[in-house]
């Protein structure tokens, strides 16, 4: 957070059918619908999040991720980030306030990996959903499905990992928590954090720019992961893999797909990090174990199915 970027704030996901997507993201994951706009976009939040929304669904004829936004602590930091991006040779578009409902001015740029990111300071504070501010109960009743706690991170596939790392570390103030190196010590995966989390954003090397691997949502316990897997079966939702554990981050996980083919993850636990921790390194000859710690085999679908 050394440059003032605090945390992931939102992700806009393209879907082929809004009603099917809402049944998935609200009925199955347990996000809560908060608003809609005149473009037909639907704004969702997870119950522990304090701002109004974190997931925006938009109708499109090609699924994937439009952009991921990070919240910045204050306007002075945002202005400094704007100058630093321009000095780094990055084009920045300024999106006016309320283009996303109840969100302030956003700075938008494209990473060398081909993904669109945004930085913003203000979004309407609505507090955690369903519990009081004072003397809060442990959790709200009335949540649906998996009852996910928060939008946590995205994993993105693209090229130019080195220049993307340079941008995220030296301009945006992230730090590298974990990496996978191939036989030539080229980095083929990089996990970056702003916080104590094992990752706030991750990239895996891929020849095409701008591809979306998954958006991940946090659950509290392994029991919650098992319950999520039960719900995936009950709803006949397309599963990718799990429940299992990752080697990378050591998080416990399950992967599945939304009705438009975008991959989701729910996960719990795993490693913590501080900026003084050296990056954890995996070698690509152990990639199977790095990705799926129990199977210890590379799953082609995990590596190649993208939106």
């Amino acid at each position: 957070m050394k440059k003032g970027i605090m945390r992931p704030g939102h992700v806009q996901i393209r879907v082929l059918d809004i009603d099917e997507a809402l049944e998935h993201y609200c009925g199955l994951l347990g996000l809560i619908e908060m608003d809609r706009d005149d473009q037909g976009r639907v704004y969702l939040k997870a119950w522990t999040e304090v701002d109004k929304y974190s997931v925006i669904l938009t109708l499109a004829d090609d699924p994937g991720m439009d952009f991921m936004g990070f919240k910045v602590t204050d306007e002075t930091s945002l202005e400094k980030l704007h100058r630093d991006l321009l000095d780094h040779g990055v084009n920045v578009d300024v999106i006016p306030e309320n283009e996303l409902v109840d969100c302030g001015r956003r700075l938008r740029f494209i990473s060398p990996s081909g993904h669109t990111f945004e930085l913003y300071v203000d979004k309407k504070y609505t507090g955690k959903w369903g519990i009081e501010e004072l003397n809060p109960e442990a959790w709200p009743r009335g949540l649906r499905g998996m009852r996910v706690q928060r939008f946590d991170h995205c994993l993105l596939y693209g090229d130019e990992l080195d220049t993307t790392l340079d941008l995220f570390v030296n301009v945006l103030g992230f730090y590298l928590t974990e990496q996978v190196l191939d036989d030539d010590n080229s980095r083929i995966a990089q996990f970056l954090s702003l916080s104590n989390k094992a990752h706030d954003i991750a990239f895996i090397a891929h020849p095409e720019k701008g591809r979306f691997h998954h958006a991940s949502f946090h659950l509290e316990t392994w029991e919650d992961i098992l319950r999520a897997a039960d719900l995936i079966s009950m709803t006949n939702t397309a599963i990718d893999i799990g429940p299992t554990r990752h080697g990378l981050t050591h998080g416990k996980t399950i992967y599945f797909f939304d009705p438009s083919g975008n991959r989701n993850e729910v996960f719990c636990g795993g490693d913590y990090s501080y900026p003084d921790h050296p990056p954890i390194t995996w070698k690509s000859d152990q990639l199977g174990k790095a990705i799926f710690y129990h199977d210890r085999e590379i799953n082609e679908r995990f590596l190649t199915v993208l939106t």
Partner: peptide
């Protein structure tokens, strides 16, 4: 067998 949602093209 990929995403089974018409999204990934596999």
């Amino acid at each position: 067998v990929g995403c089974r949602g018409g999204g990934c093209g596999k």
